[in-house]
């Protein structure tokens, strides 16, 4: 009986071990993170890169991702989360397949980005911070895209769109599925 119990405990421990946060990372993720660790004097200095890598593969940073990165870089989850929540482009909530970043800074304000936002809201039925019901787009406001001479501007994933007019939106959005 006792032996059985001990065995149970051991197997339970092993079970937990298999779900150690570091194991949660895929081989590819770990490979990329290891490369970043080599470039810096101590592991925790690679945390931003690690967050970028995991987000690249999973779309966003979940609590489990935070724990896994923390364990892998020998940091506390709170330390990792303090960094993850500081930066605008690390997503701590799930996002759609494509992220629309609408520049809401001053030159785009003068050039009426508000009209673009309103049209996007109507077409996608979402407000800033929301994801479409088909999970295709997440709509976010974004600080100056450095494209002020071609305002209003927006980015979808890695693509920059300049001198946007409401008429152009359907054609732009159609490219993303």
């Amino acid at each position: 009986m006792i032996t059985q119990n001990i065995n149970k405990k051991v197997s339970k421990q092993e079970d937990t071990k298999q779900h150690q946060p570091a194991q949660y990372l895929t081989d590819i993720e770990r490979q990329f993170i290891d490369h970043e660790i080599e470039l810096v004097p101590h592991k925790s200095a690679a945390v931003i890169e690690a967050l970028k890598i995991v987000q690249h593969h999973r779309g966003w940073i979940s609590d489990d991702s935070v724990s896994a990165i923390a364990a892998y870089l020998q940091m506390s989850p709170a330390e990792v989360d303090s960094v993850a929540t500081f930066y605008n482009l690390i997503f701590r909530k799930p996002v759609g397949r494509h992220v629309i970043l609408v520049c809401d800074s001053i030159s785009c304000y003068v050039m009426k980005y508000g009209d673009i936002y309103k049209a996007l809201q109507e077409r996608l039925h979402v407000k800033f911070g929301e994801t479409t019901s088909d999970q295709c787009f997440t709509l976010l406001p974004n600080a100056c895209l450095g494209c002020c001479d071609h305002a209003p501007a927006l980015m979808i994933d890695n693509d920059l769109y300049k001198d946007i007019t409401v008429d152009m939106l359907d054609r732009i959005l159609k490219q993303y599925t």
Partner: peptide, 11 residues
């Protein structure tokens, strides 16, 4: 890290 709103020269 050009991010001053209205600035697009370093680009």
């Amino acid at each position: 890290d050009e991010m001053e709103p209205g600035t697009f020269k370093d680009r």
